[in-house]
Structure formats: C-alpha cells, structure tokens
Design a binder for these strands. Structure first.
Lengths: 255, 255
DNA sequence: TCAAAAACATGATATTAGTCATGTTTTTCT
DNA sequence: AGAAAAACATGACTAATATCATGTTTTTGA
C-alpha cells in the first residue's frame, strides 16, 4: 500500500533491451563505449570476449525507472549514454539525490556483490539514456578471473566513497548558498562545455533537481539562484544553464 | 603556515611499533584478531602466512594522530583494539566526523589503492588503540594473489559507501534531533552493551563529539540531549552514556 | 588531592532556511 | 498553435538552529 501512494510506481517501463554480445557486427558498436570504461580496457582479450557475451544494452526514457529503491539487485550496470540520477526517498515524499551518473560510471558494482541485496536507491534517467548490464554471476566471475578488474572496482568505489564523504562534510558544515555553489562548481568542472558566454551544463537541471542535491527546498534554491543571477555568477534556467563565473562560485563554496 | 595554526599539529606521536610477523610465538597474539577480520579469514594458509610477515602493530594514545588529512598514504590499516575517528576539518577550525572505526574495520583500503594519494581525513584515536598496518605494496600483492580478498574489500567499501549515502540523506533531510537520534540508535545497535538500566555505549563520547557527527553545534546537541534526558530516552554524560529507550529513539530518527 | 581544563548547561538574540500563498513565465504535449 | 503542466519567482511569516554570553559541574593531570 505504500507503493500505491508512490507517484513513481505508476510509471511504466517502456525500455527496449538487446543482447549486444550477439550483435551482427560483434564489437563494433560496443567497443567504442567499452574502451572508455577503465574496468574493461584492462581485461585480457579472452576475458573481454567473455564479458561481452554477457552484456546487454537497454534504453530508457525520461519517465522510466531503471530500478527502484528496495528492489533486489540482479545486475551490474554501466552508463553508456546520458545521465542517470540516484535517489533516496522518505515515506512523506521528500527526496535526496545522491549522485549523477555519467557515461562510464558503474552502478550496482556494490549492491550486486551481496546475495539478495536490495537497491539502496532508485535509478532514474535524466533524459534518454542507454545502460549496459551484466548478470551478477558474470560480474563475480569477471572479478575472480581478473584481479585487475577487481582492483579497478576497488578504485571506483574508493572514489565514490570519497565523493560521498566530501558531500557529507559540505552538508554538515556549509550554508545553502555554499552548498549550491559547490554543486555548480563540481558539475561545471566535471561536465561543463565551454561556450562564448560561459560554461554550459550539458544537462537539463531544474531548481528542484538542484534542491534535491544540496539538501534544501526548491524555494531556497530559486532565491539563491536569483541572487547568483543578479551577481552575474550564472545565467539561464533548467534547459540551458550557464556558469558565468566559476572562480567566484568556487571561492564562495570554500567559505 | 597553515600547519602552524593547526592545534592538532602540536601533538607528538608517542606510538610504539613492532613487527608482529616476527613475534616469538608466531600467530598466537595475532590470529585471534585476524580471525575476526573477514578479509583474512578467507585467505589460503599460504597467503595468510605471507600477509602476516608484512603486518606490523602500533599502539596510539588519545592525544596521538595516526595520520593527518592531506598526508600521503603509505599503508593499509586495520583497527585491532579501540575506536578511531575519521575527521575532516575546515580552515576555520570546524570539524566533521565521518566515521567511528571499530575493531575489524579497514581503513585506507581505498586511498592506499592510488599512487601518491593523500589521506582525505585525519585518523584520531578515541582512547588507547592498537592498529595493524601493511605497506601499500603488500596490500596490492594480496589483492592480486587472492580474488577473494579483493571481493572482501569490494564488499567492505560497498558497505562504507552505503553508510555514507545514508548519512547524506539524513544530513540533507532530517532535523538535528532526528539526526542525533539516528546516531544514538546506530551506535547503540552496533556497539552498545546491555546493562541493567539500559544499553551502555562502550566509548567516551562528548556532546562535542556527537555534534561533529551530526552536523550541529555543541550547544544544539547539549539542548537536545537535555530534552532526551527529560524524556528518559538517554542518561549520563561522556564517560558513561546509556540509552534507556532505543525504540523511541529509533522512531524519532525515522520521522 | 586539588587546581586547571574540559564538559555540560541555559538564556537571550540573530541568522538561516522552511512553509504557505500567489502570480508569472517557460516548456511540454497533442 | 494552443492548452495544460511544469518551472520559476517573490512576499510574508514561522520554525529551526547558530551565536554569544555566562555559570555550574565533572574530569584530568601534575
């Protein structure tokens, strides 16, 4: 009955899936992506072929969910195209966005490692996305065959842990405007595209999205963004968000 | 010059160290501890002997630091006895405690995995502690020889990441009293000792310590603890902190 | 053991951010 | 293109928490 109340649960998954290891031109479409994922580039030719056979690709639209918090985890995932947000919710409808996953990002490299583990959050596309996935058993098999792959996963998880701890510090110690400045700085640096007038974020991002990422209400984020706009630090709204002064934002973020 | 201002930097490390692999009665003292660390119990006899040779044990007192934020990471560590807190600080002296590490906890299983990586936080004993450590190269060697060890580390890091993400959600969405209730619930469940009058925390924990863990000021935590005391949810102060009503604290924590 | 330091406590006040209400602008979908 | 929905915006008010001040109690260490 909790699910009945959940607005997300009405969504239908309209995704389409195919086994890419069985593609007619083996490796052509796929290798381009795999070559950008350190985890796969370090595999031996033999192991890479083996892994390819177990990978499948699925596309999701904006209104699909890849999986929901609390569901059992059966696959190891990799973002191929697009952006996926990882969200935790409370029973009363508040949301907290933990991470924006970009192409090359692994997910469920963790939950997948436990038998019967439940997803700690919901994975939701920010638009059209393409996801590669591998059954849990094949993932374990890969880790056992290739110590280098396991070490790559350790490195990836370490980075994620450091990120989460840094975010912890920010949430614990900084004001809302500093947290927002830190978010914009991070997104700008990580994925911003340099344009004539500033650094554009290649991602639709509403004030609400930002609020869920910095632990504030939508109104608070709107007010702060209005201020940032007046101070010529940013410009635009969700569909076209541009950072005009990364330096000042960075300075504000670090106190 | 930043270090000059850091009150922590005046502390001397008065620790004593010894190679436990070279102990006169090999394995006697050590195996008791190692048997509680999943990472070691899954090793083959041969690998375990090899690992033992590279481990050394160091004791630290309350006023020592095991390592400081920003220092290069050269070892993989395991808590043998006592509690270690993992802290991040801001230039203006504010602190955020990320994690209390208990016996069996691994640390720098992450930072150690990168060449020349810096410690993302400071490791500070909460009293007398005993730490096992292994040089980075031996740690890598272990991971390469034993896929099971690597998988154990992946599992450990996954748990740490989930904890950090849960804490993220709590910091982003909950009030100070709920955050404190969540902390007490967690510590009580994880390490509390059942006594006649309630669940005692086997750990000196000041209001200040708690404040650093829940992202609040000391005064705020004192006020909330005073209220919890009036409501008979907790009793005592730092040296002897007792949880009287775990259920109500748990209920408060989850809204 | 006893003085100093640290921890605990509480009040007054200021700041920050949330809540609720209302209206405008932009985007989406058919 | 045009209606509906979503996003953006701002004001008034309230709630939560920080800050500063001051005093008491407990713990620590020589």
């Amino acid at each position: 009955m909790v699910l009945e109340l959940d607005p997300l649960s009405k969504r239908l998954n309209t995704s389409s899936s195919k086994h890419i290891g069985a593609a007619k031109q083996p490796g052509v479409t796929t290798n381009h992506v795999l070559d950008r994922v350190p985890l796969f580039t370090i595999l031996s030719r033999q192991n890479r072929e083996r892994v390819l056979k177990t990978l499948s690709e699925t596309r999701y639209g904006k209104h699909d969910l890849i999986f929901r918090e609390g569901e059992p985890s059966e696959y190891f995932h990799i973002v191929k195209e697009g952006t996926v947000k990882c969200v935790k919710s409370t029973p009363d409808g508040k949301e907290c966005t933990l991470k924006m996953l970009m192409p090359g990002d692994l997910f469920c490299c963790d939950a997948a490692a436990f038998d019967g583990a439940r997803h700690p959050g919901t994975a939701q596309p920010m638009g059209e996305v393409s996801i590669l996935r591998m059954p849990k058993s094949a993932y374990f098999d890969m880790l056992r065959r290739s110590p280098d792959a396991a070490i790559e996963v350790i490195k990836y998880l370490s980075n994620r842990l450091h990120e989460a701890q840094e975010q912890n510090k920010i949430l614990a110690l900084d004001r809302a405007d500093q947290r927002l400045a830190a978010l914009l700085t991070d997104l700008g640096t990580r994925s911003g595209i340099q344009e004539r007038h500033g650094l554009r974020l290649p991602l639709r991002l509403t004030r609400q999205d930002m609020a869920n990422m910095v632990g504030a209400t939508t109104e608070t984020v709107i007010r702060i963004m209005s201020r940032f706009k007046r101070e010529r630090l940013v410009a635009g709204t969700a569909n076209r968000l541009v950072i005009l002064n990364l330096q000042k934002l960075k300075a504000l973020a670090s106190g």
